[in-house]
């Protein structure tokens, strides 16, 4: 990657931080709130730090996870890695950050069932990402091969 690519990746990672803050806070609110009360942070985090500080910590940690998730998309731009390798690298890095953040912020329950529930959705999303990238290249290749066939039959 050249300097322009690195600058682009850094910009994307900063955008990732902002997206991480928004998504982390919004998703927590969505899952923790009840019909009569808006809840912004998990109970365990609130017990440890108090509501305001817990919200600040949650926003910062979510931002860091977002930064890591976006920055690790660098793997897709690195030609040494195939699409599946890039997806696996991105998944391992991002999921590790997400699990650590999830335990710290009280998003994941203490038992194995909680962790499993937490992992299922991202795994489905990663499979869909890999499949959509794979299919987009497959379609391009199919179009190119059809065009090559036409060109070559025209020559003969």
């Amino acid at each position: 990657m050249n300097d322009d690519d690195n600058r682009f990746m850094l910009k994307m990672a900063i955008l990732g931080f902002v997206m991480g803050v928004i998504m982390g806070d919004a998703i927590t609110m969505l899952f923790a709130s009840t019909s009569d009360q808006l809840i912004f942070v998990s109970q365990s985090l609130s017990d440890r730090f108090g509501d305001t500080m817990a919200f600040i910590i949650q926003s910062l940690v979510s931002g860091v996870v977002g930064f890591i998730a976006w920055y690790s998309t660098k793997a897709y731009y690195d030609e040494r890695f195939s699409i599946i390798a890039a997806t696996l690298i991105h998944m391992v890095i991002t999921m590790s950050a997400l699990i650590i953040a999830g335990y710290f912020l009280g998003w994941i329950g203490p038992n194995a069932e909680g962790l499993l529930m937490f992992l299922v959705l991202p795994l489905v999303i990663y499979t869909m990402i890999w499949f959509s990238i794979y299919m987009s290249y497959r379609m391009k290749i199919q179009q190119i091969n059809e065009s090559l066939k036409r060109r070559r039959s025209g020559k003969e």
């Binding site: 030609e79 195939s82 699409i83 599946i84 390798a85 890039a86 990238i133 794979y134 290249y137 497959r138 290749i141 190119i144 091969n145 090559l148 060109r151 070559r152």
Partner: peptide, 23 residues
């Protein structure tokens, strides 16, 4: 076709991709 290679498009037979995504 890459940082280190240029090909004559009249000499291309076909392209292919494996499951890992290598073209």
């Amino acid at each position: 076709i890459s940082n280190s290679e240029i090909v004559n498009s009249d000499k291309i037979i076909k392209l292919d991709m494996n499951l890992a995504g290598t073209i």
